[in-house]
Design a protein around this nucleic acid. Structure first.
Length: 429
RNA sequence: GGCGUCAUGGUGUAAUUGGUUAACACGCCGCCCUCUCAAGGCGGAGAGUUCGGGUUCGAUCCCCGAUGACGCUACCA
């Protein structure tokens, strides 16, 4: 799915699980043996140690530390277990994780290519788990091993990784490898400046494609947000293509402040691209997305049994083609339910749907079990969701409609509904 | 709480690596066009650059401190 989304944007890559390459396998699950060997190397060299503490024990310790207002840290219980003792426990089949043995003294520093030297005191770095009890590596081990073996020269990732980088540097050192260059990019933000999240913004590329954004518009917008384009393009015309980005991108032009993801501006930009299309191209774009044969056929299948004239098609299906529904309480509020409990229940529907497998059967099971546990009848439950999603009490079968409409857009519609109602009644949130 | 990063209108960015009435775009408001709504054209409100100290003839820009925001603080990534 992620590959498909990136391809849609017009982005390609030289190596990967799908295209192959000289440094495979590229799938983490196919590299467990490699990670295990490297973990053993660390264990043998004394840079890591087996830890037998159970998750429960650790949770208890953490709770205490938090209560005492001390930083939550691994207490070091297994750090200096004699090799013979831990060897015996492993032999006895006791489950264990592998932790890295971070030096107690000194500090670890690295150069972030965008900000310069960054330094952390070793005493502030926790003994990170490298291999989980199930034998799978954590990101920390996997990324270092993979990047070295795959000859990665530059690690470009989000700012949230800065705090973990010293651990990675320490790992490179323990292996005797030289570390790559690190570039930490600023984080995209929600309107409230927090790290961008799906609760507050549609973040999946699939959503943007289904909602009818053009890939070149989205790419342009992301380029604007990410920075790196020269000022005369970035802030003067503000419009550029992938080719322009390849040609003009300059790391020196990257701004370090975390930009707010401004959906309104994306929409404007997308409109600009849409209007610039020839009518033929515009029509083609419609037919490829919101009016594709496949989509239209799926929608048609849902209303065939309840239609009398073809002219009613639009009346019966408008919600499949609308961007915003936002029904009023008069439509969505069940009899004998308060606004507050209804909105709260809708919020739980959202949570359940987020986790659901997107098939009618799974949706059915998930929604019904939620309704049962909260004392909502199936009718109330489904009618509420129907109102939110279709803006009406009458619609084609709910679950099938949701399946056709798609997960990304359904969730977005629900989130926007909650957002709108919350704003309307701030005290009910 | 600890550690780290960042800081120009509501949002995204500019401002010849110290000298501008602090610019542009989105958004917002108004006017024009027009059967409506958009688009388009024109205009407007909105920041004195988070705050306080320096350095300097002069700081958005350099230095120090404070504050704020964000991130990390998992057998997540």
């Amino acid at each position: 799915m992620i590959f498909e989304a990136l391809r849609w944007l017009g982005l390609a890559w030289d190596e990967g699980p799908d295209v192959g390459g000289p440094y495979g396998p590229y799938r983490q699950s196919e590299r467990t043996e490699i990670y295990r060997e490297h973990a053993n190397l660390l264990l043998a060299g004394g840079a890591a140690y087996p830890c037998f503490c159970t998750p429960d024990e650790l949770a208890a310790v953490r709770k205490q530390q938090l209560a005492a207002k001390t930083p939550p840290r691994y207490p070091g219980t297994c750090r200096s277990l004699p090799p013979a003792a831990s060897g015996a426990r492993i032999a006895a089949g006791e489950p264990f994780v592998v932790r890295m043995k971070v030096p107690v003294e000194g500090s670890t520093s690295f150069r972030d290519e965008l900000r310069g030297a960054v330094s952390f005191e070793n005493s502030k770095i926790d003994d990170q788990v490298l291999v989980k009890a199930d034998g799978f590596p954590t990101y920390h081990l996997a990324n270092v091993v993979d990047d070295h073996l795959m000859r990665i020269t530059d690690v470009i990732r989000a700012e949230e990784w800065i705090s973990s980088t010293p651990k990675h540097v320490l790992l490179y050192r323990a292996f005797g490898w030289s570390a790559p260059r690190f570039w930490h990019m600023p984080l995209l933000r929600n309107l409230d400046k927090s790290k961008i999240s799906k609760r507050k913004n549609p973040v999946s590329l699939v959503y943007y494609r289904q909602a009818g954004f053009l890939p070149q518009a989205l790419l342009n917008f992301l380029g604007l947000m990410g920075g790196g384009m020269p000022a005369e393009i970035n802030s003067a015309t503000e419009k550029f293509t992938l080719d322009d980005m390849i040609r003009c991108f300059e790391v020196g032009n990257i701004r370090l402040g975390g930009p707010v993801f401004d959906l309104a501006k994306l929409k404007w930009l997308n409109g600009e691209y849409l209007r610039a299309l020839s009518l033929d191209d515009f029509y083609a774009a419609l037919r490829q997305t919101v009016l594709s044969d496949a989509y239209l056929r799926d929608v048609a299948a849902l209303i065939q049994t309840r239609i009398e004239t073809l002219g009613q098609f639009g009346d019966l299906t408008h919600f499949f083609f609308a961007d915003d529904i936002s029904p009023s309480p008069a439509i969505y509020l069940p009899k004998n339910r308060s606004l507050e409990e209804t909105l709260s229940f809708a919020g739980e529907q959202l949570a359940v749907l987020e986790a659901a497998e997107w098939t009618a059967a799974d949706l059915d099971a998930a929604l019904k079990s939620l309704g049962a546990s909260k004392g909502w009848t199936v009718k109330e439950n489904f009618m509420l969701l129907r109102a939110i999603l279709t803006g009406s009490a009458m619609s084609p079968p709910l679950l099938e409609s949701m399946a056709v409409f798609g997960k990304a857009r359904t969730l977005d519609r629900l989130r926007r509904f909650l957002e709108t109602e919350k704003k309307r009644r701030p005290e009910a949130s």
